[in-house]
Design a protein around this nucleic acid. Structure first.
Lengths: 245, 245
DNA sequence: CGTATGCTTGAATCACGTCAACTGATGTGG
DNA sequence: CCACATCAGTTGACGTGATTCAAGCATACG
């Protein structure tokens, strides 16, 4: 485990933390670790005594079915996201955690977080809020897969990732990098990889967006939002954002 | 608002709280309120200064789409569940909350919870854990709708509700009351009401279970689990359960 | 009564999954 | 360096699972 040299930068979801909350979190961080693409970070049911803050790369979370061939990608984390902060109150997770790309993460031991909980209740509340943003995204994924049909699901997914990546400074209005295979997208959107491919051709031919070589080029953002029934801005809950100190 | 006469009984999900945590929560409770079936409890984006603990009845949570005709039922709460404890760290919600039946709930003002957070960090952590159980259920719903096909979804849904209702003493091995219409089930499972009807006939004719007059009769639990790829026991995370004091 | 709501079923349509074949890129070992 | 394997993407053909539209019934309620 690399010791910390420069503190992790605050961006994306965790940028909603206040300055003081962020500093308190950084103070809990005991090091940086890395994983290589497609490696398993933790498995469903593993006892966990630390949480991770994603600095670079993408991380996926899969709920496995009872048999090996059945699983669903239920969340994707991007830089600035807490990957498994929800393991802190529970001590374990109900899903697998996998590096989708090469990944760099900051380590936050649970005992440090417990101490922070005692010393700084407002910061604890802000962290609780972070896990609730995660839950809100879960609900949005349920909406996507349950209420939309294939083309809407893919378009909606791309819109969500675009919004989130914008907040992490990893997208601009013209597009973003998407380090996922069509099979991954299928697992995320509840459809077969083959159909993902067809939908993407449809989006391309409809001049909404082009996905090629791990990059999404957005040609017509409004049209993409319409197809995906997506309303900007995602996760902007009125004037005040996510409980913080 | 009715003042509290007898304290709410602890059951279902909240029964995972320790005695002392439960007492601390009950001490936060300022009253009991009721809603009638099919009434709106709170709307997406409403500012909220209190959370609710469900005592009697069923509550649904819907994520609305941009247009009125599109929404998804993303969660169902049963007695013993915290309905919107996640509004405490966020101050608002990303979804609507609706009484599916006549409903009775205990009221927990956020300022009381904030005080509890200062005074009893372990209890706060246990409450955080409750919201994370809720999130784990969200993930399971994503799995259900994304990874299973219609008959599996319905069977899986019935298994989940059976498991949860067992913990709340509202089910026995032979069945349980299900106060939902087929349209509700469709919104929960991401399918049309008509198809819900057909699937339920299939389950009935396959001698797995019968749903009639708001009651689910389980004929063959193992078969229902197999169809729904459901493994008992749901939300049993290893030996220790949900962080508590 | 009449109307509304929920359940049930049939028939037509189509969205989507499955299977299979082919491509191009990348990588590996002889 | 080439033969071969692998893996992501692409497309066609085919079958089926699911939606939609429609009608018919039952029950509850004004």
């Amino acid at each position: 485990m690399t010791p910390i040299t420069t503190p992790p930068t605050r961006r994306g979801m965790s940028a909603r933390l206040s300055d003081t909350d962020w500093e308190a979190v950084v103070a809990c961080c005991t090091g940086i670790e890395t994983w290589s693409a497609r490696s398993l970070i933790s498995r469903k049911g593993d006892p966990l005594d630390r949480s991770l803050l994603l600095l670079d790369g993408w991380v996926g979370r899969h709920v496995p079915g009872p048999h090996r061939d059945l699983r669903e990608l239920v969340a994707l984390e991007i830089p600035g996201d807490f990957v498994d902060l929800h393991s802190f109150p529970l001590g374990t997770l109900d899903h697998d955690v996998t590096a989708m790309t090469d990944v760099r993460m900051a380590v936050l031991p649970h005992d440090k977080l417990r101490a922070l909980m005692r010393d700084r209740p407002e910061t604890a509340l802000a962290l609780w809020g972070q896990t609730q943003l995660d839950a809100a995204i879960h609900r949005y994924w349920s909406f996507r897969v349950g209420a939309l049909r294939a083309s809407g699901r893919v378009a909606n997914f791309l819109c969500e990732m675009h919004s989130r990546l914008m907040l992490a400074d990893l997208a601009d209005p013209t597009g973003f990098d998407l380090p996922l295979t069509q099979a991954d997208l299928g697992e995320a959107c509840g459809m077969s990889a083959v159909h993902v491919n067809r939908v993407m051709r449809e989006l391309r031919e409809g001049a909404s967006c082009t996905v090629r070589d791990g990059r999404v080029q957005i040609h017509d953002y409004d049209r993409l939002c319409r197809i995906g029934q997506f309303e900007p801005y995602f996760l902007t809950f009125g004037p005040d954002q996510a409980g913080s100190a």
